[in-house]
Design a protein around this nucleic acid. Structure first.
Lengths: 227, 227
DNA sequence: CAATAAAAAACGGACGTTCGTCTTTTTTCT
DNA sequence: AGAAAAAAGACGAACGTCCGTTTTTTATTG
């Protein structure tokens, strides 16, 4: 599996994502023409992610968003009903696609050892291709309304569950050591998240996405694999 | 080393921290009587951390802080000159004490293997005792002014440097495998940070601070130790 | 294919609110 | 009483949002 494959998946999905957003929010989005709506949703989301890689969503004003996206404040409010709804919209869709792509990828693996490697690689690749999106989803989750926060937590736990299941499978098949499964999945998740949370660090040090993925796999296999 | 030792260190340090803040900001703090100033600085900082464990510093208004601390808005401005300065003040002091305690602890270790274990345990214990503080420092770093942001990054890298040095020492002494040192230190840091960033998760699962520390040590030693 | 009418979308000024901060008044303490 | 600290209130700036108007796009007509 090569990283470039992933980039393609994500780029192709960009319109698809906005299309999904449009579908799921047909009532609150006032624009009739689908093509126009999708185009501008992409502009709005790109602008939001660009701004929020530099400052927090709270700190971003609708005026900032207007300037960055090149749309007027009034026009923006044809695409969402409130600033908070914009946050929810981006987060929900980000979680959705991340989870879907990850599940798709892992399904291709044969046996727990390969699935584990595939899960780690897929997640790191995906977070590389959608870095601003992942960063935004993580860092702004606390600004979500309570009910949406719950959904974010569930999503986080579900991703972890994927790894828990793989590790359990490996223990049953006697290819993995009988370690604390939940903790193992937790620290795997921690290492995966570091890649998109500390992108500046790895970029400065010229650590490639493959270097990092291989190293994480090495650490995990050292801990789990029976030699 | 027991966790309770750490709690004591931190609690004793609480007044000391505020004392340091007072010293270093004598010109911008308008209160003359030292005892009074220290008492209220503690109140202010505690209130800030309490509020910011639920919402962002940006979202916290001075009115919120006034209500939580039981001091008037006017009184608050006798202790700092601007909201931003309050943020800088807490962050800077938090970094200072964290770094100092960590260095103190590691100095007690003999040889790289023990130093590594000690470094991991110390960091996790410390972040447990000062959880809100660590969380705040991490999550609000991006809202700092540019120059202070640089200092935060330097501090992060310095903590990592501590682990880099230990691992290098271990490789030279042939007790550690010759892995990518920088990446090893990075993922260690990632696992350490997860403890205070995902406290809710570990609390729900009733994972104790010792369970977690031991597991991280296990993972790291599996990767690095020569058997 | 123009010319015109209708619909859709974008615009940007204005409103009410909330914010950080400053000034003035009141209280507290020695 | 007088200095020090706290409280109360005022102020302007900036915010999210709304809405009347203008511009752009699409549809209709001769």
């Amino acid at each position: 599996m090569i990283y470039n494959d992933f980039k393609k998946i994500v780029n192709i999905s960009k319109e698809e994502i906005s299309g999904q957003i449009l579908e799921q929010n047909r009532d609150s989005i006032k624009i009739k023409k689908e093509k126009r709506a999708i185009e501008n949703l992409i502009r709005i989301i790109d602008a939001t992610l660009a701004i929020c890689s530099k400052k927090s969503f709270q700190a971003m004003s609708i005026r900032d968003l207007s300037a960055e996206s090149g749309m007027s404040r009034g026009a923006l409010y044809s695409y969402f009903t409130s600033k908070e709804e914009l946050l929810v919209l981006i987060q929900a869709q980000g979680r959705e696609i991340a989870n879907r792509v990850l599940c798709d990828q892992i399904a291709h693996g044969n046996g727990p050892a390969e699935k584990l490697r595939l899960g780690i690689k897929s997640h790191i690749y995906l977070s590389e291709a959608m870095q601003t999106w992942f960063y935004f989803t993580y860092i702004e989750a606390r600004n979500l309304p309570k009910d949406e926060q719950k959904r974010a937590i569930e999503s986080e736990l579900q991703t972890e569950k994927i790894f828990i299941d793989i590790i359990n499978e490996g223990i049953q098949e006697k290819v993995f050591r009988d370690e604390n499964v939940v903790l193992a999945a937790s620290v795997i998740k921690a290492m995966l998240q570091d890649w998109y949370l500390k992108r500046w660090k790895y970029q400065n040090r010229k650590v490639s996405v493959d270097d990092y993925a291989d190293f994480v796999i090495n650490v995990v296999e050292s801990t789990l694999l029976i030699k």
